[in-house]
Computed example of a mutant assay.
Amino acid sequence: MQKECRIFEALQNKLTFRQRLQYMKHYFPINYTVNVQFEEVLRAANITRLRDQNVSELSLRFLWHSVNSQVLLKIWAVLLEKHPSWEYTRDLCLLFEQLAEEYENCNQGNVDTHIWDVVEQVLTGDAGSSRKAVHPKALLDNCAKVMWLLYGKLCK
């Protein structure tokens, strides 16, 4: 948990409102969107609803990590190496890779079945899933808000 909290602090410093606004809105064309699966739009309300269904906190953190890792890779994939947001997005991807080490032991046995199914669908890029066009900043706003819900009290 201690390593997760260190990574949470680093993510917290990277996902400030000012940086999300600069790198994910100002440096992108007006109304630019990224196509993501419906399940990749993970909002705070989704987490609250899942908590009400007694989904474990480990499962929720695993879901958040898995979804946002894929979202960051999709954003990073559309950027050229000289784009002002390229390095910022790469740094976020590296932090998520570090966090992945904490979740590498997660398997179907210790993650709720429903969450495991959603994660598998996101990771496989299931073609049957509906798609949404979402602004990169909105995706990172959701990432930051859900991160606070999951780690805020845990890493004080």
Rank of each mutant, 00 (worst) to 15 (best):
F62V: 05
R20A: 03
W64A: 02
E87S: 07
H83I: 00
Y103K: 08
L21S: 13
K82V: 13
L92T: 00
N54I: 08
N35H: 12
D91M: 01
R131Y: 07
V41H: 07
F8D: 02
V34K: 06
A100C: 08
L123G: 06
L72C: 06
A127D: 09
P29A: 10
V55Q: 08
M1E: 14
R43V: 07
Q2T: 14
Y23E: 02
K137M: 14
Y32F: 10
S85G: 09
H114D: 11
R51F: 07
F38P: 06
Q121L: 10
C106E: 12
E104R: 15
D112N: 11
F96T: 01
K132I: 11
W86N: 11
P136C: 11
L95R: 03
Q2W: 13
E120N: 15
T16L: 04
R61G: 03
R90A: 07
P29K: 10
W76S: 06
L72K: 01
Y23L: 05
V67S: 08
E101W: 15
D117W: 15
Y27P: 03
E57Q: 15
L150P: 01
L42R: 05
V34G: 03
T33N: 08
F28H: 04
A144C: 06
G125V: 03
N54Y: 14
A77I: 06
I75D: 01
E81A: 05
Y88R: 02
Q121K: 13
V55W: 04
L50M: 13
G152I: 01
H114R: 15
V111F: 10
L94T: 05
L140G: 05
T16H: 03
L60G: 09
P84D: 00
T33F: 04
M1A: 12
N105M: 09
E102R: 00
L50P: 00
V36G: 01
D52H: 14
G152K: 08
R49Q: 14
R20P: 00
A44F: 08
H65T: 00
D52C: 11
F8S: 00
A44D: 13
K153I: 08
C5P: 14
G128P: 02
H114F: 14
M1F: 10
I75R: 00
R6W: 10
A10K: 06
C5G: 13
Y151A: 04
I75S: 03
E87Y: 05
K132P: 04
V118G: 05
T33I: 07
W64P: 00
L60M: 13
S66P: 01
K156W: 05
I115L: 02
G152A: 07
V119S: 04
D52I: 12
L140S: 09
Q70N: 13
C5M: 12
A127W: 06
Y32H: 09
E40T: 08
G125T: 00
K156T: 05
M1D: 12
L72V: 07
G128S: 12
K145W: 06
L21F: 12
A100W: 02
G128T: 12
E39K: 12
L42Q: 06
L150G: 03
S69L: 10
A10Q: 06
R131T: 10
Y88L: 02
V67N: 04
E40Q: 14
